[in-house]
């Protein structure tokens, strides 16, 4: 940053906007007072206790985790074969197919959410969980296809051909050659998918029901009714969980690698 005063100032301003609001949430979570004010009054952990004892938050957290795990698994199960077909198979209209699988990134999530609400929940009388599972999986498919695709595109298909040439069956080739090549991509896609599903608001908001409601939606609801430090405490707990995921990501593959696949 030395000798670049303008660039340096802009960069600092950028970091301030990205990070400082998060610090404010954390600091108010530790307040001993009753109001979400700054500076916080005294230090205590009481709001963490209240957040973890608040049944709607706990129930919603479990719902969110359940939805995130199942939709991530489904997206990988559907998406990885598609990646294989696109990268290794000879299919007509390859770029069109790839474009179709990436299109959920472009279409506004509220549009997808409202569409599934009308077709699946009203039209087919399915539960909120079914609609959410379809919606979240659709949203995660681009990661499953693009991020795993990026790791496969780097690998030389000749390795797989060599295995086949040396007498390995197609199944054996897949499990002992292709799958290890795919593993970092699958890991990155799984991580991004889990986080994306867990944090999603537009779909989860439109497709919620009294029986099934995710944590971000429950928190949005809560803050409209009562504005107290419990919401900051819950946010801080989510932050802590996210930091753990981030450290795992950084230690295993590295951030740059995981996120590099998104916008290539």
């Amino acid at each position: 940053m030395k000798g670049r005063p303008i660039l340096g100032t802009l960069a600092v301003l950028g970091y301030v906007i990205m990070i400082v609001p998060i610090l404010f949430v954390v600091s108010t979570a530790f307040t001993a007072g009753d109001a979400l004010t700054f500076p916080p009054q005294g230090v205590s952990l009481r709001w963490f206790g209240e957040a973890l004892a608040y049944q709607p938050f706990v129930g919603a957290l479990l719902s969110s985790l359940q939805l995130a795990v199942v939709s991530t698994a489904l997206a990988l199960l559907l998406g990885v074969p598609v990646t294989l077909a696109i990268q290794r198979g000879k299919i007509p209209g390859k770029s069109l197919v790839e474009g179709l699988f990436l299109s959920p990134l472009v279409v506004p999530e509220l549009v997808v959410g409202l569409a599934l609400y009308q077709q699946i929940m009203i039209g087919l009388h399915q539960t909120s969980f079914v609609a959410l599972l379809v919606g979240h999986t659709v949203l995660l498919l681009p990661y499953a296809v693009r991020v795993t695709g990026a790791s496969l595109a780097l690998a030389d298909p000749a390795v797989e051909e060599a295995a086949r040439g040396l007498g390995a069956s197609p199944l054996r080739t897949f499990f002992s050659v292709t799958l290890p090549l795919l593993r970092p991509g699958i890991f990155s896609a799984g991580l991004l998918s889990f986080v994306t599903s867990f944090n999603n608001v537009p779909l989860s908001l439109l497709l919620q029901s009294r029986q099934f409601r995710t944590l971000p939606v429950t928190m949005l609801d809560y803050v409209q009714q009562s504005y107290d430090p419990m919401i900051a405490a819950m946010s801080t707990l989510i932050l802590a969980g996210t930091v753990v995921i981030a450290i795992v990501a950084e230690k295993t593959l590295g951030f740059a690698k995981i996120f590099g696949g998104i916008n290539k």
Binding site: M18, V20, I22, F24, N199, P216, L220, V223, F255, A256
Partner: peptide, 22 residues
């Protein structure tokens, strides 16, 4: 760089709450 990318993993709801406090 990790610090700049990290917020992408964090819930929009949590990030936006910060502005309510500010």
């Amino acid at each position: 760089l990790a610090l700049a990318i990290f917020p992408l993993l964090l819930s929009n709801v949590v990030r936006t709450f910060g502005w309510l406090v500010i």
